[in-house]
């Protein structure tokens, strides 16, 4: 009986739910988490890299953070193969906009266009939804720094601080507790690291399990997307004090 309404993506259950979409969100709940915080002078994205095997070569570049355009970046939680498709679409959209208007695409418009794609997969039959949540961060001349969260249903919303992926509810409530309006970028990084250190499964935070990216304005007024190096991260972890020297070597 329970299989009646979840075998197709586009059919409502009698309670008015779309099970496939909910399952997709469930899939994201198991993925490495990511946290985004809007600061007064930028946006901070922190992500947890799941180390699945000791033998796996961790990628030199980022694997959770993606630059979409010069003024826009996103953090991903969910099925990476799905995400790659969406990230590609997003990049194409951003360049198409620049081609048409010779101006960077406003952040919300990009988020919206991507969510339209996601929504399509909840309505047209025979296809499964994208199992991906995004945190978009960016800057545009109309609304300054912005942070958006999107889910597989194609919904998106703007946030001051948001978390996606494993343990996102715990992270979200911690953010709610500790977020203040006048957070600077440095403090935002500290807060994100603190929250992540408490919601992550592993006992100690190390730079190889983390990714940190920031978007801010250079003195010239240009938008800068900057990914923190592993060495920089180690220093930051020590400074923020979230990483008490672990007694046992991390496995």
């Amino acid at each position: 009986m329970s299989r009646r309404y979840d075998s197709r993506t586009t059919i409502f259950s009698p309670e008015g739910r779309l099970y496939q979409v909910e399952y997709a969100m469930e899939a994201i709940g198991n993925a490495g988490s990511a946290i985004g915080i809007l600061a007064t002078d930028g946006v901070v994205l922190v992500g947890e890299k799941k180390v699945t095997s000791k033998l796996l070569q961790t990628s030199k570049s980022t694997e959770k953070m993606y630059k979409i355009d010069d003024h826009l970046a996103c953090a991903v939680a969910g099925i990476m193969s799905d995400a790659n498709i969406l990230i590609n679409t997003a990049r194409v959209q951003a360049q198409r906009y620049t081609f048409a208007y010779q101006e960077p695409m406003p952040v919300e418009q990009l988020v919206q266009s991507l969510c339209d794609t996601k929504q399509g997969y909840t309505q047209f039959g025979g296809l499964r939804p994208f199992g991906v949540s995004f945190l978009f961060s960016g800057w545009d001349s109309n609304f300054g720094f912005q942070l958006y969260m999107s889910d597989p249903s194609g919904n998106y919303s703007g946030w001051k601080a948001a978390a996606i992926g494993a343990n996102n509810q715990a992270a979200q409530s911690m953010l709610k507790q500790d977020y203040t309006e006048d957070l600077g970028r440095e403090e935002a990084v500290n807060l994100a690291l603190k929250v992540l250190s408490k919601t992550m499964d592993s006992t100690s935070l190390t730079s190889d399990k983390l990714e940190l990216a920031e978007i801010f304005l250079l003195p010239s007024g240009k938008v800068k997307y900057q990914v923190c190096s592993p060495e920089g991260l180690t220093k930051l972890l020590l400074k923020s004090g979230v990483n008490q020297p672990a007694a046992e070597p991390s496995a």
Binding site: Y101, Q102, E103, E108, N142
Partner: peptide, 12 residues
């Protein structure tokens, strides 16, 4: 989009 095009964008 709730925001107008800039003159430069409209020209392009």
């Amino acid at each position: 989009n709730g925001i107008p095009l800039t003159t430069a964008a409209a020209a392009n």
